[in-house]
Amino acid sequence: MALREPVLDEGAVRTEGGRVDLVVVAEMVKPGSRVLDVGAGDGELLELLATTRGCDARGIELSREGVNAGVARGLAIIQGDADVDLAHYPDDAFDYVILSQTLQATRRPRWVLEQMLRIGRRAIVSFPNFGHWRSRLDLLVNGRMPVTDNMPFAWYETPNIHFCTIRDFVALAEELDAKMEKAVALNSAGHRVRVDMPWWVWNLMGEQAVFRLTRKA
């Protein structure tokens, strides 16, 4: 595959070894706020938010290994299942509820997003865009489910059971009556897709997307 990435970026995002989308997510969080990270892994984002932005950052993570490693580093993470445990948090408990690279692995993405908008005043969601040109090309040319750096699992063993495209997500946000405050799409080089591009370009060029939503009024 010798196709070249079109140059549409606004400048590279700092990575510093960590996941690119985490930096973008962290930049959307106001310093000193209360944050819940759903699907916190071993707490990489929690640590980033606590150390660089002075947040009261807490997490939920399904995998025991992730939780135990995070708690051993002194982070506030609970072992739990987003599909169930979000129901136990009261309304407006957090300033931000974050779901990074986890939406596609939930059993009930719509319910999870609703809960996020209930628990937090703002929701930040990052996810791999299944509408990216390379996914489309894989299906079109090879007739196979795409396997990429961002989506590294074969169809039969992937935890990602609810893939969506950027446009699918935008449609869901509209259905939930959520207001889109910020949106960033990252191409495969980790560069931002220019904001003045139409949706179809984002949906084609964005390998990952990060959205910040809030309840309308």
Binding site: R64, V67, A76, Q79
Partner: peptide, 19 residues
Amino acid sequence: RTIVHALNASGANVSFAEI
């Protein structure tokens, strides 16, 4: 987990690990 849910509902700072 019941305790964790109660602590979440009360807004407390909580970690929970199952070993």
